[in-house]
């Protein structure tokens, strides 16, 4: 079974190198030593049968010279080697050598060389052949849409990618069950979602969202046919999208525990900051929750830095950077001196 591999990312080339390494391990090493021990076991030949047998001479076979010798230098190579086939020395007029040999020896020539037959050759895909073939099928090609001249433009106008696999067999059936699998992926940023909808969408799709690449990927293999799977992934995308725009009654019951991320304005940290600020200024403290939330902290020096530091500490988790940031923000806020380098 052979699989056509084509992928838009250049990373897959790595596979090919691995394969080459494998070939080298498989390759037969040239025979370096040949023990010549011609001592036969002597047989008593009473009837002198051997002599009679030896008389039978092998029939001479006249082999014609390689057709590579007769080829003119200006021939059209595409006519000689029109399609993929195993290497054959008599039809290839090139002095090719291949094989693994110890250092200092020349690799074996093209005749009777299994190494050359093992590897797939691309003799049928010479640049002129590719050119003529492209010219030949050009009449079935339509023009590329003019405005789709860059990857960005393509992504903008066709944000949805559907990925399927085709398989090519040498067997009675041309079907492959793997061909039914359909991947649909779309960048989250291209979807028209507001804050609430985005939050809900992410909750709906769960693992299907990859934060690093911003792709939402739907994979379906539950239906027996590709068409059905394609319909199904389209349905999933549509359903999730529209559902995420709906606001149900129970969504108002969302409390701080349900929050998907830390919002500083809603939390106790702001409350204490505001309280501390008011206390420093000897003002009265009797604010409602909403007033706390909407309190403008721009009046407090270095408060915005502190807010960011706390948010990142809570959202991104504790690590050296966030903790350090938090520390320096607090120092700034409270007007303490910078930590000295020698101390750390």
């Amino acid at each position: 079974m052979s699989v056509f591999i084509k992928y838009n990312k250049p990373g897959s080339i790595g596979n090919i190198f691995n394969v080459q390494v494998l070939w080298r391990f498989n390759s037969t090493t040239a025979e370096t030593m040949r023990k010549e021990e011609d001592e036969e076991f002597r047989v008593l030949d009473i009837m002198k049968k051997r002599d009679r047998q030896q008389k039978r001479t092998a029939r001479k076979i006249n082999i014609q010279p390689d057709r590579a010798d007769r080829m003119p230098t200006d021939q059209n190579w595409g006519n000689v080697w029109p399609g993929p086939k195993t290497f054959h020395p008599s039809s290839v007029p090139l002095p090719i050598r291949q094989g693994y040999v110890p250092k200092g020896q020349a690799p074996p020539g093209k005749k009777a060389n299994a190494e050359l037959m093992k590897i797939p050759n691309f003799l049928h895909l010479t640049p002129p052949a590719i050119k003529t073939q492209c010219e030949a099928i050009k009449k079935y090609c339509t023009e590329w849409p003019k405005l789709l001249n860059s990857e960005d433009a393509i992504e903008k106008h066709y944000p949805v990618e559907v990925i399927t696999s085709d398989y090519c067999h040498a067997s009675p059936t041309i079907r492959n069950p793997l061909a039914r699998i359909v991947n649909l992926r779309v960048k989250l940023s291209t979807l028209n979602l507001d804050k609430h909808a985005k939050d809900k969408f992410l909750r709906l799709v769960g693992d299907c969202y990859d934060e690093k690449t911003d792709f939402v990927t739907f994979v379906s293999d539950r239906c027996p046919m590709r068409k059905q799977n394609l319909d199904y992934v389209n349905y999933l995308l549509t359903a999730c999208y529209h559902e995420s725009w709906n606001v149900e009654d129970w969504e108002k019951e969302k409390c701080e525990d349900d929050m998907e991320y830390y919002i500083w304005d809603n939390n106790a940290s702001k409350k204490s900051l505001v309280n501390w600020h008011l206390r420093c200024n000897n003002q009265e403290i009797n604010l409602t929750d909403d007033e706390y939330k909407n309190y403008d902290i721009s009046g407090i020096s270095n408060a915005s830095g502190y807010k960011e530091a706390v948010s990142s500490l809570m959202n991104d988790g504790e690590n050296e950077d966030t903790v350090k940031n938090y520390g320096s923000a607090v120092r700034k806020l409270l007007g303490l001196p910078e930590r000295k380098l020698t101390q750390c």
Partner: peptide
């Protein structure tokens, strides 16, 4: 599966 992908149809 991604690595096996054969062709990408941008529908």
């Amino acid at each position: 599966q991604w690595s096996r992908l054969v062709h990408i149809c941008r529908t």
